[in-house]
Design a protein around this nucleic acid. Structure first.
Lengths: 292, 292
DNA sequence: GGACCTTACGGGGCCCGTAACTATC
DNA sequence: GATAGTTACGGGCCCCGTAAGGTCC
């Protein structure tokens, strides 16, 4: 069975004529006719009814078109993937980290080895881990120290790249408008959607206290901290954002931390690497990042 | 690119040695070595590092093992599917119908053409439609006349096989224990899970009235009417079951209909056939069933 | 008879196995 | 020197194209 055959078969299913399909496949009609027979032999099924003169394609043939096309696509996908992984460093990172940490990491690596090329695949916490196990590369993600990430695979190396903090912040403008924050006050909150990693961290660490002490009004939910950040800057409410993401705004006073009142979450920033499946570039990058 | 190559590649990835893989693939080591090169050529990627003496498989090779295995499996799946569809009539039917109507249909067809073989794939309403569009065969399903099933594809033929009814029933034993049913009474109800087709039918047609007039106590949920039937027979409560499914029990008095009090739902029983993808057997069966 | 497909036949390329060679351990 | 893998070479099979032979319209 050959890829060529599958493509032949597709031509036949599309052209619905042996002669035309043969032309499209750049072989003579007899040769093509023989190929069709080979395919039928392999499948053990008669695909065409040769009784009529422009041959009639049997239902069973028509029914398999989608599967055949899928198979052909997968072949080329395999090749493309091999090419892509050839000389590239793939980062799989939680959305937040792909915005906050990854840019700096890429700058650092580029400074040391200028011609490196990169691919960044953002996903949510769970998606990251699956993607990493499936595709390899480097995984950058948060870890709540209560729930350590433990891969069962032996050959996965780990480096801790320090900490980040989920800080409750509010825009200067809104802070002025709200005045001093007191127990029982109504607080407009922007949250991560329930069930997500960040939402769970907050649900465990900060929210019980907040719900006890204030009247929480959920203004908006979004899974993307970059989007929440915009909303906070637009004075829509209070959100817990990664400190790395709002460094500048904290320094210039555009955002004000409410950590003392609402509590924060400390997160480990971890980098993982499947050592046995990483190419040299990836391995080098892994060690390089660890040494920064 | 050939299927053989993929299998060669798998052997290499598993054995991690050209000599051993060659043995397993029943070719001489030089021949196998050449094949590996061909595969590498096609992929455009060096899979093995030939610098060391038992060759070293590069990470990129290891990383693609899962994809290659998947591809190989799909090849054989294609062939199996072709075989299976060869001389078989596939029924795709909602769980309930696969228990209630399908057995009789199969008996009827067998009576007329004894050597027919069948495959029955039960699914829920939505799953049925997807499966049917993907796999073909004959689709047997309920239709609530409020929400007609309309396939966009032109070549899908439809026959109505009469009606069925969702009747609220209770076991004789429980009926006696409960005594006469009066408004405001507590009713133990067995239901289909929310969101499913049958649950929606009931939610639209019967439940509003029932909830208004009685104190409903949800004893148990199950998507399978056969399972609900057992529970009803076990006097666990009242459920709406397909009349076709409980014909015998209604006649011998084991189950008692509460239709007058709780309302029933009329359903169309429809049979669909993708005419352009159906083999002769399927087409014949379709017409045969229509004529019963 | 013509369109469409299959069968027959000779030629060439591809791939195999054997054997000789090379390199790593 | 043994093990592991590549290169060289001759042979055979498989598949192609040409040409001739059937069938259905």
């Amino acid at each position: 069975m050959e890829l060529k055959w599958l493509e032949d078969l597709l031509a036949l299913l599309e052209e619905k004529s042996i002669t035309r399909a043969a032309e499209r496949r750049h072989v003579t009609q007899p040769a093509y006719s023989r190929r069709v027979k080979q395919i039928e032999d392999w499948l053990g099924v008669e695909l065409v009814n040769r009784a009529t003169k422009p041959v009639n394609i049997r239902p069973i043939g028509l029914a398999m078109e989608a599967d055949v096309r899928d198979l052909v696509n997968r072949f080329y996908a395999l090749r493309n993937k091999a090419h892509e992984n050839q000389n590239k460093i793939t980062f799989i990172a939680q959305h937040t980290l792909s915005v906050s940490r990854i840019p700096q990491i890429i700058r650092d690596i580029n400074a040391l080895s200028p011609k490196t090329s990169f691919r960044v695949m953002p996903a949510n916490n769970n998606g990251c881990q699956n993607l990493f196990l499936k595709e390899g590369g480097l995984l950058l993600c948060y870890q709540n120290s209560n729930q350590p990430i433990n891969f069962t695979q032996a050959s996965i190396a780990k480096i801790k790249l320090g900490n980040d903090y989920l800080l409750p912040v509010v825009s200067r403008e809104l802070a002025i408008k709200m005045g001093p924050i007191k127990a029982g006050m109504r607080l407009p909150i922007l949250m991560y959607p329930k069930g997500g990693f960040l939402a769970e961290c907050l649900a465990q660490m900060c929210l019980p206290r907040v719900f006890r002490d204030y009247r929480v009004e959920l203004v908006c939910e979004s899974a993307f901290s970059a989007s929440l950040k915009e909303k906070v800057l637009g004075s829509m409410g209070i959100a817990w954002l990664a400190k790395d993401l709002i460094q500048t705004e904290l320094e210039n006073g555009a955002l004000i931390s409410l950590e003392d009142l609402l509590g924060s979450v400390m997160l480990d920033v971890l980098l993982f690497c499947k050592e046995d499946e990483a190419n040299d570039q990836v391995t080098n990058a892994f060690n390089m990042i660890g040494s920064f």
